[in-house]
Structure formats: structure tokens, C-alpha cells
Amino acid sequence: MNKNRIKTELLVHDLKNPIAVIEASADMLIRNAERENPLTERQIKALTRVIRNSRIAMSLVNDILEVGRSNEGILNKGTYRCFEYIVFPFVEIFDLIDPEIAERISRAGGYKAFIEILASQGVRLEMDASLWEKEIFLDVRKVRQIIRNLLSNAFKYRKKEVVVEISLDDNNLFISIADDGKGIEKEFHKKVFERYFQLGDEREHCVRGHGLGLAGALVLVEDMGGRMTLESEMNRGAKFSVSLPLGR
């Protein structure tokens, strides 16, 4: 392990601890209030925001760690069923949007229940039901993070719907995630994959932020020997497609 990797992991460790404490403390205040001192609606909303933003911060920290590992070519492949790659990213995303929906997704227990919950939230999953239990040999953490980062981007810009397509052939796992938002100007098609580059909420001008989402996803995809493409036209949304070669 080189010095830069050690520094990154130490920094991530130092950041994770206070973030976890903040989230746990806010959660404890809400739970204790139910039994002891009731909180006002405004106080509960404020604490809920603390919890959600703590989770966002933790996701960003995990992005930094995983991208750092990818830069060193570290892969941890294993055999997992298809749903084990797919479900967790949705739980993470909805945990930031609506924790009750996240809980329902985590307990869905099967393909039909899973797609029905997603459909109720404006997400259309196009995947053959036979893939749900299919075993796939890949780095599950990296695949989950790729899906989460692309979902996060799609939810940020969608108007009404997000479409997720999952398919498989003998050599590759295919993932595509599309939103029905305003779309991305052609001049930004390469820039959106740059670290810390973000588009404005209306996708009319670029703004700098702390986003590693698309850049991080691209690093992970390429580290696994895969490919990511973008299809987008103004007023027709954006579709990010990923192909990942299956491990042997």
C-alpha cells in the first residue's frame, strides 16, 4: 500500500467517525422524543435533515475511498445474485428521499414486489424476471456504487420518470439509467465526466461543486474493463449506459 493510499484511507476513517456520530445522535434524539420529551414538528424536520445530509456526506466519503482504490486497480470480485447488485443502490437513494420507501424496498423480497414499489415512485425497471436470481461474478461494491451514482444523477434531473434497464449476455452485464429531464448540451457530454464538474439545476450553465458521481462512476467502470456512454438531446433527457465484462 503506497503512502497516498494510506493517507486517503486515514482521512476517510477520520471523516467517517464524526459523520456517524452526528447521524446516530440526531436519530437518538428523535427516537427518545417519542418516549420522553416530545419535539416540535420543526425540530423533527431539522433533525431529519441532519440525518439525511449525514448520509449524503458518508456517501461522498465512500466515493472518495472507492475511487482511490480503483486508481490502484484494486478489485474484489465475487459471485452474487443479480438482485444483490441492484437492490442496495435503490435503498441508499431512497433513504435520502423517503426512508419509509427505502425500508419497503429493502424488504421487498422478490422481483415483482420490487418493481411495483419502484413504479409507485416513478421508476420503471426493465429487466427480465429470470435475471433476478442469476449469479454474476463481479466486484459487487463497485457495481453498486456505479448504479447509485447514476441513479443519483437521474433523480436530480428527472421531471417525472427514471428508466433503468438491466440485461446480460454471455460476456457482459449491461446497465442503463435514463431521466426525462431537460437533457445535456452536446458541448458538455465529455465535461460531465470530469471530477468536481456539475451542471446547474436547469442544465443551462455549468457550476462547480463537490460531485464525484459521474466521474467516480466512470473511474469504476473503466477500472473493471468496462465502458460508459452518454446519449442526450436537449429537452429529451439523458441516458447513461454501462457495459461491464463478466469475470471468469
Rank of each mutant, 00 (worst) to 15 (best):
I115Y: 05
A108L: 09
E103L: 14
Q145A: 04
R144N: 14
Q145W: 00
D139H: 01
T79N: 14
Q145H: 01
A129Y: 10
F114H: 04
K134D: 01
Y85H: 14
P99T: 06
E100V: 08
R148V: 01
E84V: 05
E116D: 15
R124K: 15
L150D: 05
F94I: 01
F137T: 04
K112L: 12
E92M: 12
I136C: 03
V143L: 03
I136H: 04
F90I: 02
E126H: 00
I105H: 01
R81M: 04
L150N: 05
A129G: 10
I93A: 14
R107Y: 10
F137V: 02
Q145M: 13
L118N: 07
D128R: 13
S120Q: 12
P89W: 14
G110W: 03
V91I: 15
R144L: 10
K134V: 06
V87I: 14
L96H: 05
C82Q: 08
I147A: 06
I136A: 02
E100G: 04
E103Q: 13
L138G: 11
G109L: 04
E126L: 08
V123N: 02
I117E: 12
D98R: 09
A119G: 05
E116T: 00
V123G: 03
R148Y: 15
F83H: 15
V91F: 04
E103F: 11
E135Q: 15
R81E: 01
I147Q: 05
I86D: 10
I147S: 03
L118M: 05
F90T: 07
E103P: 02
G122E: 11
T79G: 06
L96P: 01
Y85L: 15
I101C: 07
P89K: 12
L138T: 11
A129M: 09
T79R: 13
K134I: 03
E92H: 03
E116W: 00
W132I: 03
M127S: 08
R144Y: 07
M127W: 04
E133M: 08
F114T: 08
W132H: 04
E92W: 07
E116S: 00
E84S: 06
V140K: 15
I146R: 01
V91C: 12
D98E: 14
F88K: 08
I101V: 15
V87M: 14
Y85E: 09
M127Y: 05
N149V: 03
D128A: 09
R124T: 14
G78E: 14
R148I: 06
P89M: 12
E103C: 10
I101L: 02
F94P: 09
E135P: 13
E116L: 00
D128P: 11
N149T: 00
D139W: 00
Y85Q: 09
K112G: 02
L138S: 09
E103G: 11
